[in-house]
């Protein structure tokens, strides 16, 4: 079981949350080239290292937040920050 520190609800079982992968900015759909858009859709960093990622507190506060997790050891480094849906602006 992975305890994910939600900024509003405190540590929660990862089963209570939804994972949204690497946290990266969404390009503007109106001006992005097809290449930029597809890179945004399909290419994510997949390191065996620290990764800044987005989570959604599905059965708690129902908010998105970002945090840094080590994908090898499952440690959390930075305090979780309130965030938006992955890549999107509020």
């Amino acid at each position: 079981m992975l305890l994910v520190p939600c900024p509003n609800c405190g540590p929660r079982n990862s089963a209570d949350l939804r994972y949204f992968g690497e946290s990266h900015e969404r390009p503007n759909p109106a001006s992005a080239s097809p290449h930029e858009w597809r890179s945004y859709l399909y290419l994510e960093d997949n390191p065996a290292d620290w990764l800044k990622e987005s989570w959604f507190c599905r059965s708690g506060c129902r908010r998105y937040f970002t945090l840094e997790r080590h994908t090898g050891t499952n440690e959390f480094r930075s305090p979780p920050m309130p965030g938006n849906k992955v890549g999107g602006k509020a």
């Binding site: 079981m1 992975l2 990862s14 089963a15 994972y19 990622e53 994908t71 090898g72 499952n74």
Partner: peptide, 13 residues
Amino acid sequence: DPFNNYSVRGSLD
């Protein structure tokens, strides 16, 4: 598993 991970440890879930 529901999130990216390079660990091959099993979980109780």
